[in-house]
Design a protein around this nucleic acid. Structure first.
Length: 843
RNA sequence: GGGCGGUUAGCUCAGUUGGUAGAGCGACUCGUUUACACCGAGUAGGCCAUAGGUUCGAGUCCUGUACCGCCCACCA
């Protein structure tokens, strides 16, 4: 037994396999596409514009499979549109500034921005983003994105900075951007304010402390809190007006355990069920505190500084200068000593955190720049309805978010590396001064010359030291694309864009802000279609993020192991918008498909060498089976086109796979093999018919495969069969080269990726052929089943195949009989009248 | 608490406008001297989560329920 295995292994190894090697060829074709400018946007070319608002990946860490997943979805669409004759503009961008980039740089250089000179830090940022630019580009090229790299942009480029600052000025002058001192979401870790959209929730353990407050009449009033360190900032105590327990307390004074006296107020927002039903209001523990402070004109007692440390509290507490968590421990100790803690209960509750770093949110009163968002809710909702959301239910997420907005968009960040807020203000009269556009991009804090206030002529202009939220700039990508200098005569005329691809997690940020910018600047939504992708998950509920880097599944490694085509194919297996679990088996399936395409191509090519593809075989001279496969190939192309136009790439993939693998390979090629190898005079006509059909339908297959697996499709398009070896050793192998290959020579299009999508002629469509083919395939399948059940080898002959068929259908099947006999190896094939279709096989 | 998805073969998922349940992987049985063993032929395996309703007919449409996931709200 062992000996036999060894023998098999040996013979397999000795057989030199003619196999497709993607690792060698993918790079080869990527270089070819670049050399030939296959994907370059030409503003002068005809064809409907199809412009893609590619997401510029944020430089914040390594790209992971999640990126590959959603980018491939748009990529596949772009290839399809190009082949449909659209003038596709598929650019690339890089979002390489702002907080996310800073955090990456801080991590890489193991130092914090605030601990070094600004110049030095910005230098490090530029260095790092340059490095990542190359890493990102290489990855995108290695997966075969068909983008026009010449239309690339970077959000830190001078042009984009200039645009951002111009937009800032424009919107300020429109009265849409304003400056305000108000409590805002603040991250003590990043030391900046941030927007509602960047807040997320996290479950955290906490202790619920019941503290004893003393009412002026001497009664105890229990206040439950998770934040005793804010006690010094307590400005009021609230109870619910309907709460019977606290009737009559309203308006009375109460003393905190630290001794300050505050008033007891009543408000509906207090939940009587929660804690003791009485709550302290501090500066500022949460959003309700801000609300109450405003409604009841409560004083501000600011005890948190910008680094999240306490200040201005009573000296005896000893918490000044301590971070929140430390201060909490200390103060709890003190309160226990005073016997002011009645109960402590461990709980788990959700806390708002900054999504960039996971630090619990604070609310700090600072002066910030805002864009009016709340005023625009109605219009945002209206614009949302005008966009084609794919899948459509994603539009609901947008609506939900917009409807739930509570803050205007805070666009200033007290950070270092980004686009500066282009503003000076007078230190005397406070007037705001924005330089002329011709001075953009400008960094106010770097301006050496001291300027006098043009307003009061007394004060001097002080630079605004903030930078803009990175979303401010990235929400302008439709404009950045539209205004690109390489757009030629279309520059400035490409708004709105055709399509924005993005993942669902940034609907509330990127999509919402982009629509807002569109409304303010163009009075229109920035695109016709929004294509929303899901996420790749590793296990149930586990997202791959840049933080974890995708764990062991790094895209570079996946490509190196399985090939770009294989990974691309796998990424197109799950419906648009759905989250998918990463499954290596799917990738292997992609690789197998490429191999299958290669092998089928080899069969086709080796049988059409003597066939002149310019020769059009007229319909009358085509065999039924050949008509069948041709029709079906065009039909598959049409069905795929329909799916692609709805951005349903996974449906398109399924249609392709079924047609190619089952119909073309397993059925058609097996059926037609006999005719292809019949070199006799008699078989000439049937052979030519088969050659014509093989050529056409396989060309269609290559085209249909090309959006998903562009490398192998190009490979086969440029392939020829050559003979290798001599005498008995001689065999046919595939060789492919740029500007060579059987299909290339006949079709005369430089690349399969700019060839025309298969589109059949309606008049050529013959329903009888399809009906006949169904019966034929049934007969073949029955014969195969018979052989399998009777343990007869497939290539062995059978004596009889009888097709029992209703009279009316016999004419449909007749033209297929010879081919059926050939594939089933039936010595005799006959037709019998019957009520119902059935097949009888004899050994 | 609200919104949105999902629940189909052992696993991962397709199922277009209602008309006899599909694929891949896995299992099992067969089959390699010429496209492919990274393959082919075949077999087994499903009350389509659940309860109702509409219909001649429901995996598909409607309503309720359960469970899973995502997003939002809650954060004293």
């Amino acid at each position: 037994m062992e000996g036999l295995n060894d023998k098999n292994k040996d013979s397999a190894a000795s057989k030199e396999k003619d196999r497709y090697d993607p690792f060698e060829k993918e790079k080869y074709w990527q270089d070819f596409w670049e050399e030939k400018n296959i994907y370059k946007f030409n503003p002068d070319s005809l064809g409907d514009l199809f412009t893609i608002d590619t997401p510029p990946p944020t430089v914040s860490g390594a790209l992971h499979l999640g990126h590959i997943y959603s980018y491939i979805h748009a990529e596949v669409i772009s290839r399809f549109k190009r082949m449909q004759g659209a003038n596709v503009r598929y650019p690339f961008g890089l979002d390489n500034n702002g907080l996310p980039t800073e955090r990456l740089v801080e991590k890489e250089i193991k130092a914090r921005a605030q601990d070094m000179e600004l110049e030095e830090f910005v230098g490090k940022c530029l260095e790092t983003t340059e490095k990542y630019k190359e890493i990102y580009e290489n990855l995108w090229k290695s997966i075969g994105l068909s983008v026009d790299w010449s239309a690339a942009y970077s959000t830190i480029s001078l042009e984009v900075q200039k645009l951002s600052q111009s937009v800032f000025k424009e919107l300020y002058e429109k009265g849409v951007i304003y400056k305000k001192n108000a409590p805002a979401l603040y991250c003590p870790e990043c030391q900046t304010s941030f927007a509602q959209a960047e807040k997320e929730d996290k479950e955290k353990e906490a202790v619920f402390y019941d503290l004893i407050f003393k009412v002026e009449n001497g009664d105890d009033l229990i206040i439950a809190t998770t934040r005793p360190e804010l006690l010094s900032a307590c400005v009021a105590v609230f109870v619910n007006p309907k709460d019977g327990r606290y009737k009559g307390l309203k308006g009375k004074k109460v003393k905190t355990p630290l001794g300050q006296e505050v008033e007891i107020l009543a408000d509906e927002k207090v939940d009587p069920e929660k804690g003791s039903g009485a709550v302290m209001c501090c500066t500022y523990g949460d959003e309700t505190d801000i609300y109450w402070a405003k409604i009841y004109s409560l004083p501000e007692k600011i005890i948190l500084d910008k680094s999240g440390k306490l200040q201005n509290t009573d000296e005896f507490l000893g918490i000044n200068g301590k971070p929140v968590y430390e201060a909490r421990k200390i103060i709890v100790e003190k309160l226990r000593e005073k016997e002011a803690v009645k109960k402590e209960e461990k709980i788990v509750h959700s806390v708002g955190v900054h999504e960039r770093c996971g630090t619990p949110v604070e609310f700090l009163s600072t002066t910030q720049w805002f864009i009016k968002l709340l005023d625009k809710k109605e219009e945002l909702l209206k614009a949302g309805k005008q966009i084609n959301w794919r899948p459509d239910y994603m539009g609901k997420r947008y609506e939900e978010w917009v409807a739930g907005l509570k803050w205007d968009w805070c666009i200033s960040r007290e950070r270092f590396y980004g686009i500066p807020v282009p503003v000076f203000s007078c230190d005397k009269c406070g007037e705001i001064f924005i330089p002329d556009e011709s001075e953009f991009p400008i960094d106010p804090k770097k301006e050496k010359k001291e300027k006098q206030c043009p307003g009061c002529k007394e004060g001097k202009l002080v630079p605004d030291r903030n930078i803009l939220d990175t979303w401010f700039t990235s929400s302008l990508t439709p404009d950045i694309n539209n205004l690109h200098p390489l757009n030629g005569k279309l520059q400035g005329k490409m708004y709105p864009m055709s399509m924005r691809p993005q993942a669902h997690d940034i609907i509330r940020t990127w999509a919402v802000y982009s629509v807002l910018m569109g409304l303010y600047r163009h009075d229109a939504a920035p695109w016709k279609d929004l294509m929303i992708s899901g996420h790749i998950l590793l296990r149930k509920g586990e997202k791959i993020s840049k933080k974890t880097g995708g764990g062991k599944y790094k895209p570079e490694e996946m490509i190196a192991e399985h090939s770009a085509d294989a990974l691309r194919y796998a990424m197109c297996g799950v419906a648009l918008g759905k989250d998918a679990y990463y499954d290596e088996k799917e990738v292997k399936k992609g690789k197998k498909l490429a191999t299958k395409l290669y092998n089928a191509g080899k069969l086709v090519l080796s049988n059409v060498q003597d066939f002149d593809a310019k020769e059009k075989i007229s319909k009358e001279n085509l065999e039924a089976a050949d008509k069948w496969i041709l029709q079906r190939s065009f039909e598959a192309g049409e069905k795929m086109a329909k799916a692609f136009n709805e951005y349903e790439y996974s449906q398109a993939r399924q249609i392709f796979e079924d047609f190619f693998w089952q119909e073309f390979c397993d059925n058609y090629l097996e059926i037609v093999k006999g005719r292809l190898s019949d070199l006799s005079e008699k078989g000439l006509k049937g052979r030519m018919s088969a050659q014509f059909a093989c050529y056409q339908s396989f060309l269609n297959i290559l085209k249909m495969a090309s959006p998903f697996i562009p490398h192998i499709a190009e490979e086969m398009y440029h392939a020829d069969i050559i003979k290798k070896g001599r005498g008995e050793e001689e065999k046919e192998v595939i060789e492919s080269k740029k500007e060579s290959g059987y299909f290339y020579k006949n079709e005369k299009t430089a690349s399969i990726h700019i060839s025309k999508w298969p589109c059949g002629n309606k008049e050529d469509f013959d329903e009888n052929i399809i009906a006949g083919s169904e019966i034929a395939l049934f007969a073949v399948s029955e014969a195969r089943k018979f052989k399998s059940e009777n343990k007869i080898k497939l290539r062995e002959e059978i004596s009889l195949l009888a097709i029992q068929c209703p009279l009316g259908k016999q004419n449909l099947i007749k033209p297929f009989l010879a081919d059926i006999a050939s594939v089933t190896k039936a010595k005799e094939i006959k037709m019998e009248d019957a009520e119902e279709l059935s097949i009888e096989v004899k050994k």
